[in-house]
């Protein structure tokens, strides 16, 4: 079956395109433009002083720290799970896939509540950890944990369709030819999934940096201590420091934009790879 080839629009088509562009402009381009304009409304100096504010810097540091711990964990386990469900058939495979997807369905506030109940001081685990002198709730460890939860599907979700489509003949050939497991993974699998893996990582990073609802529940949002950048946006907004809030928003929006650019690039490379191997 051939796929549809895009054509030059007729009159009706032009109307539809115009309408589509209108909504994209209204709902996507204008908000993005507003962030950049609003952050600089007070001029460069105010922007710089907002950026170098000590609470802002603390929020940036904490956010980066959380992302730094979250991303590698999800990268490793996401790849392992994708490997497991695409290369093998076993009982409960579908269930495992459903579990990977579960965080998509769970509202951030509900996710936060789950972690609060588990690690709060009134629970068996939280109480026990507290007795050991380990503070998890209302501190950075629980922010990391809940962020791992929220971003857990992304790497696996990027890899599973691709690895399923690629099949496992190449890996099997490598094994039959005597490669060991690690060598096979590094030389055969990794080059095949490289771009999807990179995009999964970028997406995980973007979501880890931007998570709001669940972190708001578990962190306590203590200024300068457990306040991540998205929480800081809200805090500044509540302080009626609109320009400051948009300064923090600008940082987050830049990461989002970078994500989109990298996505386009990675998809381009992945497609080139696919069409290259077909010839």
């Amino acid at each position: 079956m051939q796929t549809y080839i895009a054509q030059k629009p007729g009159t009706g088509g032009k109307v539809l395109i115009g309408l589509g562009i209108f909504f994209v402009f209204l709902l996507l381009i204008l908000p993005l433009a507003l962030i950049f304009v609003a952050a600089f409304r007070g001029g460069w100096e105010l922007f710089a002083s907002n950026l170098l504010d000590k609470d802002m810097l603390a929020a940036i540091r904490l956010t980066l720290w959380v992302a730094l711990l979250t991303v590698p964990v999800n990268l490793v386990f996401g790849t392992l799970i994708a490997w497991c469900v695409t290369k093998f058939q076993f009982m409960g495979r579908k269930l495992l896939i459903a579990f990977i997807d579960a965080p998509y369905a769970i509202s951030p506030v509900v996710a936060g509540l789950c972690y609060l109940l588990l690690y709060g001081n009134q629970s068996w685990l939280g109480g026990w950890l507290n007795e050991q002198g380990i503070q998890i709730i209302f501190a950075w460890p629980v922010i990391v944990l809940v962020t791992i939860f929220v971003t857990s599907p992304y790497v696996a979700r990027e890899l599973i369709p691709l690895m399923e489509a690629q099949g496992s003949e190449e890996e099997e050939a490598a094994m039959v030819l005597g490669a060991n497991g690690l060598r096979m993974f590094l030389r055969v699998t990794l080059p095949n999934i490289k771009w999807a893996l990179l995009y999964g990582t970028v997406l995980t990073t973007a979501r880890a940096v931007g998570e709001f609802g669940s972190v708001a529940v578990v962190s306590g949002a203590i200024r300068g201590h457990t306040n991540t950048l998205p929480l800081h946006v809200q805090l500044l907004q509540q302080d009626y420091n609109s320009i400051g809030a948009f300064t923090a928003a600008l940082l987050l929006a830049s990461i989002a934009l970078l994500t989109l650019i990298l996505k386009t690039l990675f998809e381009f490379f992945q497609n080139r790879k696919l069409s290259g191997s077909a010839h």
Binding site: G20, E211, V233
Partner: peptide, 28 residues
């Protein structure tokens, strides 16, 4: 269906709501 200027840009921007933190979206 259609070929038009700016198509690739729109296709890329569609994912913005996934990439943009919700707090930023709400504020903006």
């Amino acid at each position: 269906r259609y070929q038009f200027p700016g198509k690739k840009l729109i296709d890329t921007l569609i994912d913005l709501p996934f990439a943009l933190p919700t707090a930023v979206a709400g504020l903006t």
